[in-house]
Amino acid sequence: MNDGRRVLIILPAWNEEDGLPSVLREFQQQLPYVDTLVVDDGSADSTAEVARAAGSSPGPSSPTPPRASAPATGRS
């Protein structure tokens, strides 16, 4: 249920090209009124491309060590 407000789910991801499609599909099915922002934390795979193909906005990526910048990007 949504009362008209916009909702954004920020999803930090690192090398999640295999698991990301099912997660994003589940969000779209269960919460069709939310937007998702996938923050690719310097993945070596195609996490950002997978997010984009699934209709999610890929956030800024960083070449920093894994999992270091995604939580901070979500708080910005």
Rank of each mutant, 00 (worst) to 15 (best):
D40V: 01
V7F: 06
L24G: 07
Q29D: 13
V39T: 03
P32T: 09
Y33Q: 14
G42W: 01
V39R: 00
A53P: 01
R75P: 00
Q30F: 01
M1T: 15
D40C: 00
R5K: 15
G19P: 01
P65S: 10
R5H: 13
R52H: 15
G59Q: 05
P63E: 06
A51H: 11
P32E: 07
N2K: 06
T36Q: 04
S76F: 13
A48S: 15
W14P: 01
D45S: 07
L8A: 13
Q29M: 02
V38A: 06
W14F: 15
A53S: 12
V7H: 12
W14A: 03
P32K: 09
G59Y: 00
G42E: 04
P12V: 06
S56F: 08
T64E: 03
L20W: 10
P21Q: 09
A51F: 11
A51Y: 11
T73K: 03
D41Y: 00
Q28E: 14
V7L: 09
E16G: 01
P60Y: 13
Q30K: 09
A51P: 11
A51W: 11
R5Q: 14
G59A: 02
S69D: 15
L24T: 10
A68W: 05
S61T: 15
D40M: 00
N15M: 05
T36M: 09
T64R: 02
S76Q: 09
G55I: 13
A51D: 14
R6Q: 08
R75V: 05
I10L: 09
A72I: 11
P63A: 05
M1S: 14
G42A: 06
V7D: 07
D18K: 14
P71Q: 08
E17Q: 10
P21R: 07
P71F: 04
S69I: 09
P21I: 08
A70Y: 02
S61C: 04
L31M: 10
S56N: 11
I9V: 15
W14T: 04
P21W: 08
S61V: 04
A13M: 03
P60C: 03
A54Q: 15
T36I: 13
V34P: 06
Q29N: 12
V50M: 12
R75M: 11
P21M: 07
R6W: 00
L11V: 15
S69C: 11
P21C: 08
L11K: 06
R75D: 02
V50E: 08
S22H: 11
R67W: 14
R25F: 03
G42T: 07
Q28V: 04
D3M: 09
T64M: 00
D45L: 05
T36S: 12
R52N: 14
V7M: 05
S69E: 14
